[in-house]
Every structure is written in structure tokens, then in C-alpha cells.
Nucleic acid binder design. Structure first.
Lengths: 252, 252
DNA sequence: GTGCGCCGACTGGTCTGACCAGTGGACTAG
DNA sequence: CTAGTCCACTGGTCAGACCAGTCGGCGCAC
């Protein structure tokens, strides 16, 4: 990454986008609060001095962002949805904008979330879930002989199961999302690495160790192995300067 | 949770929403792939047999979901954006719909993230940042004499600082976001609790312990205290049946 | 032949004005 | 006081128009 001047593509700002920003800003400032109502569309037309089409396009964006909801015929106007959304959504969208996050931040996040999920799972898992977990290991073993995509798929199933056992859908969702982003960034490199097969085998081995530790009820060890595994698996793609932060996450 | 028949509120399906679904389905099926182009708006008008306003409202939703992007004048039509799209977006949206999350999931998430941030921070913190941290403690002490809102503000500053020291903006973001949601759900109850002042003092005390542990470089202890503190602070608002999950998070 | 500039057929962004099926509050008849 | 009606208003959708931008190709000058 050289530091030569990097120019952003110039793009026009649309009217509906400026409306969205104004509403979201008002919400962030507290001028507008959940439970309140937005003026009716025709009122907004007057206030923003644009056409109703433009107002409605802005409302569609806000609606899809979980900020407001419209109901036909409701004289009170569009409803501003309970807290949740606006702030949360904005941040989460930023989450999806990968270019603002470094790879090490994403991987660190996964180490934390996955480790924690495994730790909780080792306490809460039922015997049946333990069986499921071991079945997933077998599937991973088989997938290695197919290709990296198949292995990746099986690995996803493993982590989904872990997150589900941890009884926290927020962990589950975050894990899935961030995992997808990380893989999108480096899956190609792993798949085409000369030692790709060795990497997969090693990963499988570590996963088996994790399951063993879970079976033994040793959540601490299970989480540690999982973090170490993730570090080994991904750290090579992170600049040296950022590896220290990740290393600090492995142990406790 | 009784199992009596539960009816969903019936709501009209909008035309633009059906267009969004059709496009996302096509994407999920693979009939449409990133890098491809959507037909022009006027073409879509013909295909979907709706007006251009409707097509455009659908495009705004898709655009805000990161599925497509339009560029004025581009004869190729709206662009289907790389990767990110459908699957990722769907997950992210689910994350934003807080009402599907239980309080214990949110609090558990915070215990994990905050604990991890503190652990990393205790390794990476500079002497200056340690000073900042202690300054925040003083601010929290002063805020107790004002009101709960002030205390909450100071507490936020503390956790923001921790997250910043941990050098992971993803942790920072998630912490802020989920903290806001949790507070939105129960801030009132805490503020009006009869022992509100005692709660704040106790919380302050634990924060000071955390800082001590960070100063000593004992990340493990710091994180443990922080998780315990958060459990004590919030667990009372969580149903008994879900407290076990949280308790499993405290230790390791 | 090659390069350049112009042009025109398109695009998306915005506007206007209209119609419809709903909603909910005011008003009225009992 | 209630039950029913009514009406002003809402959001959803439509048709048609204009504008500024984009891009590919045509033709001109060299």
C-alpha cells in the first residue's frame, strides 16, 4: 500500500439521499425520537421543497433501514420505530463497509466472538448437540477431499452450530456476517495456497481438539484452542504490525 | 411463552416490495450475479408492468441494501454490486431488528465484547491512556452527584476509551451500539430504582478495580471483574431462566 | 489511417398532478 | 351513551413530462 494521493470517484448527491441524512441526523441529535411521527408525505414535500416522488424514495430508504414504517391511511404519518434501529443500523451498515475495517480488526472480532461462543457452548451443550458437533467434524473431513469451497461450507456449519448452542443469536449473526466478510477478502488466497490441503487438515485437527475440550466441559481450553486456531489460520494475511493485537487475544 | 395460536398482523404487500423480492430471489438463485446489470428503469417498468415510480422505490430499497447501484446516464443500467449482497445483507438486517433479541442476548454480547476489549487494552495501553482512564473515573465519581443520565454519559466515555485502546474499531462500534440498545430498554428502571445511587457507587468501585488490574497488566483479572460487574448491574432485569447463560460468561 | 470533437439516443433524477383504497376522528341518529 | 355514518386525510400507485448526464458512433481535420 503506497501512500500516493488516492482520489475518490466523484458522484452527485441525490435529493432523496439528502433527505435521508437530514432525518437520520435529527434522530441522532434527539430532535426526533422513536415513537414520534414524521409529518405526512405531503407535508414533507412542503418542508423539503421537493416532489412527493423524491420524498417517497427517501422514505423507502429509511424504511429499509428500519428507521420508519408507513401505514396506508394512517393520519399520524410515518412512525419512527422504537430505538433499535437508527443508530444501530447506521453502525451495522458501517460494519458491512469493509474498507473501513482492517483485516486484523475483523479477525480479532471473530477470535473473540467465536471463542466466547465456544466457551458458553461447552457449558450449555446437550448430549445431542455434542453428537451434532461430531457429525460436523466428519463432514469437514469429507469435504477436504472435495475442494476448499466445500471445506469452507462445512466449517461454516460447524461455527453456526456452535453459535446456536451458545443460545445467543446476536453472537450467531455477528459471527456469520464477519466470517463472510473475512472470507470474501482472503478466501481466494487460501484456496490457491500451495499448502491449502495441509491448512485444511490442520484446521480440522484443531476443530477436533475443540470438540474434545467441549465434551470434557473445559470451556476455557476449548476457547483458547479455537482462538489459537483462528490466529494460525488467518494471521499470515495480516501485516506484522497488527499481529501483536491479535496475539493478545489468544490467551488470557 | 404459551403455545396458544398466535396470529400475525395482516399487512398489505406493496408492489415495490414484491419487485425487491423478485430481484433478491433471482440473485439468490444465481439467475442474477454481481457484475451483471439490471435492465434500465424503463425496461423494468415494462417487465414488471408497474409505473416507474414503483420501480424506482424498489431500486431505492435494493440500493440501500447494498444490492445495486445506479449511475445517472449509464446506458448499461443499474449495476449489481459485488459479493456483499443478498446473503450478507439479510443477516445484517436481522441483526438490526432488535426486537428479535432478548435482553440477555444483548447483555451477554456486551459482557463478551467489553471483557475482550479490556483484556486487549490491558496489554496495549500506553501510560497516557492509563491516565485518561483514571480521569474518566473521576468524572464518573462527580457525575453520581448529578443524576443517572450524567453517570451514564461518563460510563459511556469510559467504555469508549477502553474500546479505543483496544485498537479495534469493530469492537468499539459494537460496544457502543449494543450498549445504547440495552440502555434504551432498561435505563428508566435503573434511574428510578430506589437504590440507584448505591448501584452507581458500586459500579464505580468495580470500574476502579478494572483500572487497577489494567495498570497491573493483569488483563485476565480486569476482564473478569468487568464481566462480573456487568452481570451484577444488569442481570436483575433478565428472567431467571436466562441468567445461567450469562453466568457462564463471567468466568473461564 | 488516425485522432479528435461533436451529436444523438439513451440513462437515471426529479417534478407534476391525478386516482384509489384505506384510516380514524368528528358528527349524528338512535 | 352508544352505534353508525361520513369525510378529510393518509399512503400506494400511476402516467407523462423535463433535465442533466453518459457513452458510442459518425464524420471531420490532419
Amino acid at each position: 500500500m503506497t501512500k500516493r494521493p488516492q482520489f475518490e470517484p466523484v458522484q452527485p448527491v441525490r435529493a432523496y439521499q439528502r433527505i435521508v441524512e437530514q432525518v437520520e441526523d435529527a434522530l441522532a441529535r434527539g430532535d426526533l425520537a422513536p415513537g414520534q411521527r414524521l409529518p405526512s408525505e405531503r407535508e414533507l414535500v412542503a418542508q423539503f421543497a421537493v416532489s412527493r416522488s423524491t420524498v417517497r424514495e427517501a422514505l423507502r430508504v429509511l424504511e429499509s433501514n428500519g428507521v420508519v414504517r408507513s401505514r396506508p391511511g394512517d393520519p399520524n404519518g410515518p412512525e419512527i420505530l422504537p430505538y433499535s434501529s437508527s443508530a444501530l443500523r447506521k453502525q451495522v451498515t458501517r460494519l458491512a463497509r469493509v474498507d473501513e475495517l482492517t483485516l486484523s480488526e475483523l479477525i480479532g472480532f471473530r477470535m473473540i466472538m467465536d471463542g466466547a461462543a465456544i466457551q458458553v457452548a461447552s457449558r450449555l451443550r446437550t448430549p445431542e448437540e455434542l453428537d451434532d458437533l461430531e457429525a460436523t467434524l466428519v463432514a469437514m473431513r469429507d469435504a477436504i477431499d472435495v475442494d476448499f469451497a466445500a471445506f469452507s461450507e462445512a466449517d461454516l456449519a460447524f461455527h453456526e452450530l456452535i453459535a446456536r448452542i451458545s443460545r445467543n443469536s446476536l453472537i450467531q449473526t455477528c459471527n456469520e456476517v464477519v466470517r463472510g466478510v473475512v472470507l470474501g477478502l482472503i478466501a481466494d488466497k487460501i484456496a490457491h495456497a500451495p499448502n491449502s490441503r495441509a491448512l485444511m487438515l490442520e484446521s480440522l485437527h484443531h476443530h477436533a481438539e475443540v470438540v474434545d475440550a467441549i465434551r470434557a466441559g473445559n470451556g476455557h481450553a476449548a476457547a483458547r484452542i479455537a482462538r489459537q486456531n483462528m490466529f494460525d489460520y488467518y494471521a499470515g494475511y495480516v501485516p506484522d504490525s497488527e499481529q501483536e493485537t491479535l496475539r493478545a487475544l489468544i490467551d488470557d
